Amino acid sequence: AAAEHDIVAIMYTSGTTGPSKGVRVAHAQAFTYAQHAGEAMQLAEGDVYFAPLPLFHIAGQWALVYACFQVGATAIVRRRFSAGEFWSTVRESGARVSFLLGAMANFLARQEPKPDDVDNPMERMLVVPLINDVDDFRRRFGVRVCTCYGSTEVNVPLISDYEVTEPGIAGRPVPGFDIRIVDENDRDVPVGAVGELVVRSSEPWLLATEYHRNPEASLRLFRNLWLHTGDAFRKDAHENYFFVDRIKDYIRRRGENISSFEVEREVNAHPAVLECAAVAVKSASTEDDLKVVVVLKSGMTMEPDELREFLRPRVPRFMVPDIVEVITELPKTPTGKIQKHLLR
């Protein structure tokens, strides 16, 4: 029989910041990842759970299928996400639970409203990351929404409740995980300050064991006895943790650190924008220039200066982009995450 420390799979990362890495995952990590994802959604026996996530990815294989095995729920599997077909699949299958990853929830929210949007059986949705205007999303579709933070390496150490509203929030620590936010020397930063999220577990084998055939990356992952996520976070006085950015996606401009995540949130609020990505590009002077790559809604047009004028009253001056590029489609991984390294 398999033991908890035996390797169940080599799961590959999404490859949003560079080449994918193979993560050697023990049975204990796979089991608890599925368990925590199910707990976040309050998944129960008899539930019908639809998540349009690929089965080669941890979210599809564990947060969907494995989680259903654990509690006796039904998993609805589809080959890919389609905003136009999502709600018809929900109605046909009777799905009451869903997990939306990356841009999926944003695509649903930015479709034209229909009179029967609320006429569906969906009850509970795990949305990662949490979208803007989540309360409007709840009212429009008649659903409860929660969020969490997890990855191939780190399990699911942060989960929110269903009352969450603030954009950027990732949740509170899950029992069994120690969480810190540290500076470049692995010292704790003050409450409210931004640093790297580092994690360790109270039980063995709940985190990635190593990167497959990549000892250099494995050494960088585990430093000073903590797993380094590569994600910038901050927390408030109530132990709410907020995702700020991938550290590799952080932008340094005019002496200021800029979160690409925050820039994208404001750009996506423009009525003509379907989705976008903010990246740093080399500047002719110093530090970085800020580039925003935009996909427009069907039939819409927008000039770069129009977007800048829209942003000026909403963001600090240093967050108004130097470069605005309009394209037809963003490069993405099979799980729907934007491959920003291809846009720089």
Rank of each mutant, 00 (worst) to 15 (best):
V90Y: 04
R91I: 06
R91P: 05
E92T: 12
E92I: 08
S93R: 10
A95R: 02
R96I: 01
R96H: 02
V97Y: 04
V97A: 04
S98E: 03
F99R: 06
F99E: 07
A103Q: 15
A105V: 09
N106T: 13
F107N: 14
F107T: 13
L108W: 03
L108A: 01
A109G: 00
R110A: 15
R110T: 15
E112W: 01
P113C: 02
P113E: 04
P115Y: 03
D117Y: 07
V118D: 02
V118A: 09
N120A: 13
M122D: 03
E123Y: 08
E123R: 14
R124E: 00
M125Q: 12
V127S: 08
V127D: 03
V128P: 08
V128T: 14
P129A: 07
P129E: 00
L130D: 11
I131S: 02
N132M: 14
N132G: 14
N132H: 14
N132V: 11
D133Q: 15
V134C: 07
D135L: 00
D135Q: 06
D136K: 13
F137S: 06
R138M: 03
F141T: 09
F141H: 09
G142L: 03
G142K: 01
G142F: 00
G142E: 04
V143Q: 02
C146W: 02
T147F: 00
C148D: 10
C148W: 11
Y149H: 11
S151K: 11
S151C: 13
S151N: 10
E153Q: 10
E153K: 05
N155E: 11
N155G: 14
N155A: 15
V156A: 06
V156E: 05
V156F: 06
L158Q: 04
L158I: 09
L158K: 06
I159W: 11
S160E: 12
D161Y: 08
D161C: 08
D161F: 07
D161R: 10
D161P: 07
Y162C: 13
E163Q: 14
T165P: 08
E166N: 07
E166G: 02
E166D: 13
P167K: 09
P167L: 07
P167C: 10
P167V: 13
G168S: 12
G168P: 11
I169F: 05
A170H: 06
A170C: 12
G171A: 07
G171P: 04
G171W: 08
R172N: 04
P173T: 05
P173S: 07
